[in-house]
Design a protein around this nucleic acid. Structure first.
Length: 138
DNA sequence: TTCGGTTCTCGTCATGTAGT
DNA sequence: ACTACATGACGAGAACCGAA
């Protein structure tokens, strides 16, 4: 992350006391870093007009020591976990929605089959009666 | 009214699977 | 091998309900 460039920050979805910095790296890929509240000053915060309300740009300053790099990678790891959590939350919602829908479908099918079963039972009954009368008269 | 038990809902983690 | 996604399992909190 030493080649970090500029990025967007949105505080809205973050745990209290942290902010996310999104970097655009040299190769154009997006990277994220969580920034504890106390460290926000280490970034040069700007707010270009092209970004949505509540989003600002940030440029990190001087991350050079091994310790800082370790902290940085720890932040990256935490951020990755956070992003996974977010995605998984959505996935779980979707999964449950599908499951509900599936169960509803099954219940509908059960109702239809029960009705068919009733009809068939009635049909069988009347056929039996018909058959009985016929054999009686023979 | 309130307390304890039960059910529902949601977020998270772990794990399996398919696609690249 | 790595990644993204789907889903089961689990725990926490909310909602509901009947008994005291």
């Amino acid at each position: 992350m030493t080649n970090a460039g500029q990025g967007a920050v949105t505080a809205a979805a973050m745990p209290a006391g942290t902010t996310i910095v999104q970097y655009t790296q040299g190769d154009g890929s997006q990277q994220f870093v969580t920034v504890p509240a106390g460290e926000v000053q280490a970034y040069q915060i700007r707010a270009p007009s092209s970004l949505p309300a509540g989003v600002v740009m940030a440029t990190p300053t001087g991350i050079t020591s091994p310790q800082q790099l370790a902290e940085e990678s720890a932040r990256k790891r935490e951020l990755r976990l956070m992003k996974n959590r977010y995605k998984n939350r959505e996935a779980a919602r979707e999964c449950r929605r599908r499951k509900k829908e599936y169960v509803k479908c099954l219940e509908t099918r059960v109702a239809v089959l029960e009705q068919q079963n009733k009809t068939l039972i009635e049909e069988l009954k009347s056929l039996k009666e018909l058959y009985c009368h016929k054999t009686e008269t023979e």
